[in-house]
Design a protein around this nucleic acid. Sequence first.
DNA 1: GCCAAATGTGAGTATCTTGTTTATATTCTC
DNA 2: GAGAATATAAACAAGATACTCACATTTGGC
Lengths: 208, 208
Amino acid sequence: MSTRIAKPAPRMRKAPRQARSVATVEAIIEAGARVLSEIGWAGFSTNKVAEAAGVSIGSLYQYFPDKLALVDAIRRRHFDHVLSVIREAAAEEKPLRQFARELVRGMIAAHSIHPTLHQVLLDETPGDRGSRAAHASFQARYLEHYAAAVAQYRRRLKNTETVARVLSSAVEGVIHNAARRNMLDAPELQKQLGELICAYLSGQGVRA
Amino acid sequence: MSTRIAKPAPRMRKAPRQARSVATVEAIIEAGARVLSEIGWAGFSTNKVAEAAGVSIGSLYQYFPDKLALVDAIRRRHFDHVLSVIREAAAEEKPLRQFARELVRGMIAAHSIHPTLHQVLLDETPGDRGSRAAHASFQARYLEHYAAAVAQYRRRLKNTETVARVLSSAVEGVIHNAARRNMLDAPELQKQLGELICAYLSGQGVRA
DNA sequence: GCCAAATGTGAGTATCTTGTTTATATTCTC
DNA sequence: GAGAATATAAACAAGATACTCACATTTGGC
């Protein structure tokens, strides 16, 4: 219970100017993502990340003011990636079947590198200060894109937002579960996930 | 890397004989579930659990030989609960619509007490020794019940297991996501989740 | 080649957490 | 009321870990 008055907490302590340092920073973020995905937030220590990156701990603190700034960087990079995937899938008008296929492919690809990173970022990672805003903004845009797709393919136009939420979390659930048992690239699973999306969105199947 | 030769690790150090101690043990397990759900495995400490249970740390160690035994007890209790829910929903033959409704209701009820406990148990909790077996056994029986339902309602009989896996993880994903944003009891969500299940299982919608 | 700036190093520290024991006090059963 | 069961919390030992600092090395422009 010490005096906790809003630390400024800058993104980076120092900007990398030479090619070397750019590579170092990149290596740190990449290793951080790996550690976070493989061991989870509980085991995420700066020393461990530095070691995994093949970099001294001092170098890490030369660019990141503290642990949370590092997590922020990891989060930003990953969220940007995922957002681009769904944005692309929902971009132009295309048949439902194709949308589903592209979405599944993209999502699986995005999770193949660090299978459980996404969930760890959402569930375990603390959301102090600025990251909360980024978090919310990500979620909002994420949902927006899903909602756009839902509005495009769904006949009944009611509850678009709820439908989008259900759809997105269902997809995430399947992918996360598959990631946990190393089945992300099973083609059978991809097909079924695609069918789930199509079935739900075309959804004239059963009446309420 | 010390000598890691299978600790026996008994379930309980001592069985509660009087009513008092039974209540104590129950309070500990309950508080443990609460802590695990609210703070996650990273913040799960025996001292914290004891305090949350309104019990001294000594009492905790009088019944549980170590931290993992406690987690085991929590896990066992929760898994039994969830299993009974799905077993009941998939028990007798009933219309698809009704099955979906009962499954959703039961699942939501099971997650309403400790919203994120299930995911924490699956994702963050370590699986040393005996718990691995329990874990696997739970997953197996869990899937079995889903598969039974799938076999009952799905027309095409191929890939029953994959379909069951996709279905179960989709349901879990939706519920977990709703739990995170405290929307578990939104009736709109329940309805949509039911529709998702029905649409996927009836699933004549789109051809491959 | 030279030098100032940029970058990299890693041992060290100070602090905190936490699992577990133990000696002691209280409550129950008979 | 005796002895067993149960509860208490102070204390500890061991470890983890975020972060600093004084120094070494490399780079890029001149």
